[in-house]
Computed example of a mutant assay.
Amino acid sequence: MITVFADQHLYEIASFLPDSVDLILFDPAEGLPGDLHRAQGLLIRTVNAVNARTLPEIPGSLSFIGTGSSGTDHVDRDYLEQHGVAFADAAGCNARSVAEYIATSLLIWSEREQIPLENRSVGIVGVGHAGFQVQKILDELDWNIQTVGYDPPRDRRETSFRSATLNELLNTDILTFHTPLTTAGDHPTFHWLDEEKLSDHSFELVINTARGGIVEEQALLEAQQEGSVPYYILDVWENEPEINPRPAQKAYLKTPHIAGYSIQAKLNASQYVADALLAHFNLDPKKQRPDHSLQQVDEPVDHFNDLAELMEELHPIGTYEAELLRILRNNPHIRGRLFNKLRAEFPLRHEFSHIRLPDSYFERFPVLKNLGFRIQVR
């Protein structure tokens, strides 16, 4: 039997591990467990960094660390490799959820501001798992949205992929970010969208759901004041969880790093890291996996005034925003702790393909079918 410490908020993680694993859950708010010498494996989330400062002495027993997230900037992978610790992430686990957040945000913005999405160009910075799904869902809207994928590192790796040029990207109407946060290499992404780029180009809308710091918040604020970026939407923040209230208050939509949060994405994340852990220790996976029923919506469609109001009912983006604003306004001394608490404890949503709607919804809002919602079967 092996002992594994796991973040207690890794969704249903126990359901993915067999009895041959002694699973010990820990509270990430209290930092990494102090008795890791007992463990062979450690499963974390983005709220706990792993590096020479947070884990200065890696126990000899610990041979595997996994993170239930698609990003890995909170883990010093070179440090783990130097100490012979295997590492796995959950890349791609939440790609569809992120794409649905982008589509929801765009539809709410378009409807409320009376800015049609038809014939708009959307620049996608980073065309990995999430960026590809964003491109896919925008193409499926069938509104002649031109997607411009910018990913020079992938262009270099894959002969079948062609990245847009920087000039092509910076001449789009809308920018959305889906790239890791990096500070080194040929294409560092830290403060990629900075004062220099924003002073030379204007965008109707900027969205960042990737990592805080890819977009320079102060430069974005100044661009908004000058009118070159009238709207921006942020789900990720510099210095998270101690976020700056000013850029948050000025954001068109603001949420607490939850774009990738859905029941399906969380199940994917737990399964990916659990499978990697079991493969590392040559253990058989658990045969019975968790199953979740579909969400049925029965409220009459006439209850909703417009598509934006309906989308806020089907996706909790508005509720997340209200809770985040409450934290920023009323809790200056503990807002970081409450930010993480909101992320960890807010009820998860279903992805669109797991939501069943009456026929009348599709008759009034045909775009719902393009988004992947399904018709109820009576």
Rank of each mutant, 00 (worst) to 15 (best):
M1V: 11
L10D: 02
L10Y: 01
F16T: 08
F26D: 02
A29C: 11
G34T: 13
H37Y: 09
A39F: 07
L42Y: 03
L42R: 06
R45C: 08
A52P: 02
P59F: 11
I65K: 03
E81Y: 05
E81G: 12
E81H: 11
A99D: 04
E100W: 08
P116C: 03
V127Y: 10
K136D: 15
V148N: 01
T159M: 10
R162Q: 14
S163R: 04
L169G: 00
L170F: 12
N171Y: 00
N171P: 01
T182Q: 09
G185M: 11
H187P: 04
T189C: 10
H191A: 08
W192M: 14
L205T: 02
A210M: 06
G213N: 09
L221Y: 02
E222F: 03
P230S: 10
W237Q: 02
E240G: 02
R246H: 15
P247N: 12
P247S: 13
Y252A: 10
K254D: 12
T255E: 03
H257E: 08
G260S: 02
N268C: 13
A276V: 00
H280C: 04
L283N: 07
P285R: 06
K286Y: 00
D291S: 15
S293V: 12
V301L: 11
D306K: 07
L325F: 13
R335C: 06
E345F: 10
F346K: 09
E351P: 05
S353W: 12
S353E: 14
L371N: 03
G372V: 07
V377H: 13
